[in-house]
Amino acid sequence: MKQFAYLLREALTSLRANRTSTLVGVLTTGFTITSFGIFLLLYLNVQKVVGTLQDHVELIVYLKEDFSSEEKSQLERWLKQEPSVEEVSFVSKKEALEDFHHQFPDESFLLDGIGGNPLPASFVATISPNSNSATFVSNVATQVQELPGVERVRYSQEWVERLTLFVSYLELGAVIIGLILCLASITIISNTIRLAFFVRREEIEILRLIGATGTFIAIPYVIEGAILGIVGGGLSVGLLRGMFEVFLQKINALGLIGGFPSALEFFPFQTSLTLIIGGMVLGCTASILSVYSWVRVRP
């Protein structure tokens, strides 16, 4: 206990004594974790959107301008008997127009000039989540396309596929960038620690003289690295939070599609904690690397 108090005091003294290099160490870790965090935020949110989209894949069947009521009821029957379809709703031309005015109030004038209602009537079929694989949905889509009175079939799966691909690129990017940044910050932190070590080489010599083990000598520097990492990690979580809020406000100000910004999320508490712990691990690794390489060369 007394030993630990001593070691902790040594670490804090060293941090205070080498302010510049402490700052550099904190900023480096902060930068690393922030960059990684931005990626992670992007990744988590895109993945979430993909998840939501995947949960309700919709098949939209646009009807011909001149469909008959017989064609309509036949189509409705077909969709209802299809086992993968969970729910079918009909959107008439009038409803489609109302929806448009409601969703894009600013763009309403676009339709004013045309006269009449250019929007088609449609069926919206919700595909059950357990049968929404890409090929399956496109199969259903081609079958529906053949039915009489059908103008066009669209389905949100196309988007899901593109986004899934995007997510896998993000994953790859996150791994590569994460690795590079980790290496960079380990290098920089271990230089910070090595400097602290160099400044205090006399002291270390003395400690060795009176029988301190390598571990005893190393611990203050490992604590020092851990503190650098934790502070850097905490700083970057704060920074990410701030940037995220600003981003949300900007999006809201732009008045993008309603509902989209509210779907964006900051990481859960555990992830923030993990980032901070990640910073600590980074700092510890860096110190251990630099301290042990020193301890080993000096018996």
């Binding site: 007394k2 030993q3 001593y6 400690l207 009176i210 029988g211």
Partner: peptide, 10 residues
């Protein structure tokens, strides 16, 4: 210091 290194009590 030599005593702290050996973990002696306060």
């Amino acid at each position: 210091l030599p005593l702290i290194i050996r973990g002696l009590s306060s």
